[in-house]
Structures are given as structure tokens and as C-alpha cells.
Design a protein around this nucleic acid. Sequence first.
DNA 1: CGGCAATCCTTACATTGTCAAGATGAGTTT
DNA 2: AAACTCATCTTGACAATGTAAGGATTGCCG
Lengths: 214, 214
Amino acid sequence: MSLKSPSDQAKSKGLPPPTYHHGDLREALVQAGIEILEERGLAALTLRETARRAGVSHAAPYHHFSDKGALLTAIAARGFRMQHNAMAAAAQSTTDPGEGLQAYGLNYVSFAQNHPSLFRLMYTRECGPNTPPELAEASSGFYPKMVEGICAATGCSVEQASSISLLLWSTMHGLAMLWLDHQLLWEGHPPLDKLAYELSELLGRILQSPNPAP
Amino acid sequence: MSLKSPSDQAKSKGLPPPTYHHGDLREALVQAGIEILEERGLAALTLRETARRAGVSHAAPYHHFSDKGALLTAIAARGFRMQHNAMAAAAQSTTDPGEGLQAYGLNYVSFAQNHPSLFRLMYTRECGPNTPPELAEASSGFYPKMVEGICAATGCSVEQASSISLLLWSTMHGLAMLWLDHQLLWEGHPPLDKLAYELSELLGRILQSPNPAP
DNA sequence: CGGCAATCCTTACATTGTCAAGATGAGTTT
DNA sequence: AAACTCATCTTGACAATGTAAGGATTGCCG
């Protein structure tokens, strides 16, 4: 009896004894996937390993996800929700619209730093032009929220705010990505937080500078 | 005789008849890899498929690359060289330092648009902290070249130019990445070139705006 | 209480990365 | 020029992975 059956494994983990059928496997798989991602990186995030960690046979996930891609999509969607919550909390730590916007941006790169593999998975899914609606729904929201915040902070037109919003998003996203990919390793290589703060200060000037006619 | 031997395949492709031993397999593999990448995306870039396209057995690559990762690294390095050349050419199309800098940045995202999978491979290699020297050597160069260009265009200090350089790089990189990942699909979704130009114009104002003391 | 449908397991197969031996030919040495 | 040597290439094998088919188990609904 050297091999334990999947259900034995699950029970031996001390988890709340599932009524059977594992209770809510879909959720458990997503959770397990995120854990693997944070502990051992994207390369270790395999379907079978996820099932193993959830204490279930390797084909069980197919009753909840049509595909490995579907699992990854669900994990990415969960990641987007996590990031949304973290950023919203950061933005609400102040009442000043300008500071709120800055906190919003800084928290964007903080999240990338704290969850490197998850962040990469979220934004690196090569799902062609047909993005799964679950993902699209979860990932949308940054842009409109930023436009709103910029309008509140500067009182400029929605059109101008759109451009500025894209600028801020691109900058923070690019900084996070470059850091994740170890591209920011020149001499001195200050910590990521410092770089992000620098850039946010630099960008802050645009918000107050005069806007010449287009 | 339905199956052709690898060498037959290579010869039937009309390539310059190799003395044998394929001539320069390492180069052929990198080339084949780039082709697969552009035609069928990153998921299709498999070691065996690359060997197949190069007209060689599936284990042959191991005599030129220690690992699949090493192949990917070589392809990425090649990509960096391609991007360097393209950007340098774009920058030299004008004599005005400001315009040159703008062309430099716009070409950065153009390259990403024209070689989506290759671009992603280049910047998405999860090679931990121990980046292979071949890659590091090939990918370095953007930053110092931009700092130099910014100094020439604005006459500001090297320190300020460093911050601005990081800002430009991050912005263009982030824009390219977000576009590649289909994150820029809100209503209207203007073409990428237009967005890049918008941002470059917006950023241009920083270069001329007064710099308050730190 | 009986059947149904969902959930899960087992088995199986093609593909992939990787390794270990053999074959082959190019260049060098004698 | 003949023989040797070694890098290069091929063949065959193995474990791991994604995926599909069919059988077992369980909760639920009538």
C-alpha cells in the first residue's frame, strides 16, 4: 500500500472533509494553480500537477475546464480580480485625487513584483483575437477607472484624460514587465519601488503642465 | 518509400547543396525557429518541429544547443539584433535629435507589431536571475543609446536623462505589450501606430517643460 | 426506493524534451 | 594516399504532459 489514492491524499491534508466529490473542485484547482505559480513559477504549472495538488486524478479537471487553456484563463481572471482589489484598496487610502491616482499606479507595479508569475500569466496569455469573455470581463476596468480618476484629479476633458490614462497605464505596465524580465539591471539598479516612484513623479508634471492646442 | 530521410528533405528544398552535415546547422535552426514563430506562434515553436523544418533528426539540435532553452535564447538574441538594426535605421532617417528620438521609440512598437511572437519571446524569457550572457549582451544597448539621444535632444544632465529614458522605454514597451495582449480593445480602438504617436507627442512635452528642483 | 446525471477514476495514446549508443563523414596525421 | 579521430548526425528509448474514451461512484429528484 505505498500508493495513496487521490481521495486519501486529500483527506490526509487535513482539509475540511469534503462531502465527497471534493466539494468545489473548480475553486480548488484555481487555488492550487495560483499556489504552484507562486512557489515554482509558470513552467511548473502543469495540468497534472495542479490536479495532484488538489488531491484528484489527472483527468478530473476536464469536468470543470474544457482545456488547459481554460484553467490558465480562470487563474488569470482570478489574478485580475486580486489586482483590482489591491489597487482599489490602495487608491482609497487617500482622499486627494492626485495622490489616489499615484497610489493606484504604484500599486500596479507592486502587484507585479509580489506576484511575478501570476502577473505574467495574466498579461501574457496568447489567446489570439478571441479573448475568452471571462478574461475580458475581469481585465477590463483599469482603463475606465483611470480615465475617471484623471478627470477628477485634473478636471480636463475626457478625450485628454483618455490619452493620459493610456500613458500612465503603458508606463507602469512597461516598467513592471521590463523589471520582471530583468531588463533593468544596469549599474546601480535601484529597487523597483524607487523607479516606479520616480516615473510617477515625472508623469505628475504632465497633469499640471499647460496643454497646447492639438 | 513514402518517408524521406532528413537529408533527402534538405536537398529537395533546393537550398545550396550542403557539403554534408548540413553546413551550418546552428544558423539553420535559429532561422527555422524564427520562421515557425512568425508563421504559427510561440506554441508551435517546438524543438522537434524546428529540427524537422531544418531537415534534420529530432536530436540533432543537441549538438548545438544544450537545451531547448538555449535554442530559445539564441532566437531571442537574434531578435534583439534585428530590433537594434531596425531602430538604428529608423533613427538615422533624420538629423534632428528630437525627431530621431521619436522615430526610435515609434519603431520600437512597430517591431513588436511586425514580429509579435518574436517580440514576446525576447522579453518574456523567464531565465531567472542568471540571464545567459548571449542574451544580456544582445538586449543591452537600448538604455545607454536612449540616454545619449536624450542628452543630445534636450541638453539636460545625464541624471535627468536617465529618468526620462526609463520613462520613454517603459511607455513604449508597455504600450507594445498591452497591444500584443489585446488589452487595448475599448470602443474605437485606434490602430497601434496612432496610439504610439499620441503617446510620443505627449511625452515630448516633458522634454521641453521646466524641471522643478527635485 | 430507483434511476439519472454529474463528478471522478482508470486506461490509453500521441507529442514533447532529453539521453545514450551507434553510424557517418571531414579534417588531420603519418 | 590510407588510417585515425572527432564533431556531427541518426536511431531508439524513456518519462512527463495534454487529451480522449469508457467505467465507477455519488448526490439528487421523482
